[in-house]
Amino acid sequence: MSADFDVRHTAHLARLELSEAEAAKFQSQLSQILSYVEQLKEVDVSGVDPTAQTAHTVNVFRQDAEREWFTSEQALANAPRQANHLFIVPKVIE
């Protein structure tokens, strides 16, 4: 896997612009990290069910009840631009 790792693709997905030097540096560093993590493949997990959780529990729910939190003034307090209670961002092309 580490050999297939393409830092340019990952940078594009993260919307990061990398210089040639940065690309080379991160390609090598991130590849090393991946190789390190790959050591996990040596563990025998044939008797273990795959999971994405370690909490060993399920169903942590809320009841469907509403509560107030921010007013729109509070929600917009840190907005660089706002108008008519809306966050204003550069025009988005659909």
């Binding site: 809320r62 469907d64 009840a65 509403e66 509560r67 107030e68 939190w69 921010f70 007013t71 729109s72 929600a75 917009l76 008519n84 209670h85 809306l86 966050f87």
Partner: peptide, 21 residues
């Protein structure tokens, strides 16, 4: 009555950004 992952009210036509957390 409330949102999927928080307790903000689900209401159509409210003042913008008033149901946020």
């Amino acid at each position: 009555r409330s949102k999927m992952f928080c307790g903000c009210p689900v209401e159509y036509g409210a003042e913008p950004n008033s149901h946020t957390c």
